[in-house]
């Protein structure tokens, strides 16, 4: 994708833009700029549907917490805030690396962009690893969602005496489970984008895929920013 024209950001250059027709520009768009903005608006609309998906679960959390505040306070004691804090830091860092990858592709530094994308995938894997350890320690002690709730073992026995404790864990598993699913999908998407970036598909002229993957990843981070204090801390 050679850039012999230097696109000046003014409406007067519409003709120049029109004659200049890079490979990635689909014919139904006036300019790369317009194509990029359309894709981005589409992504924001998708992100809002994601926000609404999660908000349903946040409503469930709010309603049940308001009905049984003592249960939620007691049951959340069994979640380890150290794991939660580390995972928060891991996801925040992965948000930084994905933002950096966009910064680098905007400056045509493809290698650095790819490294940052791979770092994001790596950090996401760390997040899922920690989540796996957490889930397993719960399953070992019979802390399952819904009707399978049968807590036993030193730190979990008291949950059997706490009324509605299974409600907290149903909400915990569904919220973190669907969030975890989003992390897995994000890992796949970012790895795929990194592969194409490595093959030279993107440049400062055309990096829509990286931008959109980044937006998605930041949303996953935002959901966790809310889940962390609500489930682990209070």
């Amino acid at each position: 994708m050679a850039t012999d024209t230097d696109p000046a950001p003014a409406p007067a250059t519409t003709d120049v833009e029109h004659d200049y027709h890079p490979e990635h520009l689909q014919h139904h768009f006036v300019s790369s700029e317009q194509q990029f903005d359309s894709a981005k608006l589409g992504m924001w609309l998708f992100l809002i549907t994601e926000v609404l998906l999660f908000s349903g679960m946040f409503v469930a959390y709010a309603v049940y917490r308001q009905w049984h505040p003592e249960t939620f306070a007691a049951a959340s004691q069994t979640l380890d805030p150290v794991f939660g804090t580390v995972n928060t830091l891991v996801l925040l860092t992965s948000s930084l690396t994905v933002a950096l990858s966009i910064h680098y592709i905007q400056h045509d530094e493809v290698k650095k962009c790819v490294y940052n994308l791979l770092a994001t995938v790596g950090l996401a894997a760390v997040f899922m690893g920690i989540k796996y350890v957490e889930y397993m320690s719960k399953f070992e002690h019979g802390v399952f969602p819904g009707g399978f709730f049968d807590p036993h073992g030193a730190h979990y026995e008291f949950l059997a005496q706490v009324p509605y404790a299974s409600q907290f864990f149903s909400i915990y598993f569904v919220m973190t489970g669907i969030h975890g699913l989003h992390v897995l999908i994000g890992m796949g998407v970012i790895a795929w984008v990194a592969y194409y970036a490595w093959k030279g598909a993107f440049s400062s002229e055309y990096y829509t895929h990286i931008e959109l993957a980044g937006l998605y990843w930041h949303l996953v981070d935002i959901v966790w920013i809310f889940l962390f204090p609500m489930l682990y801390l209070i």
Binding site: S95, A99, D221, I222
Partner: peptide, 10 residues
């Protein structure tokens, strides 16, 4: 925190 992510990272 979410606002910072939305305004600057996104």
């Amino acid at each position: 925190k979410a606002s910072l992510v939305v305004l600057f990272f996104m």
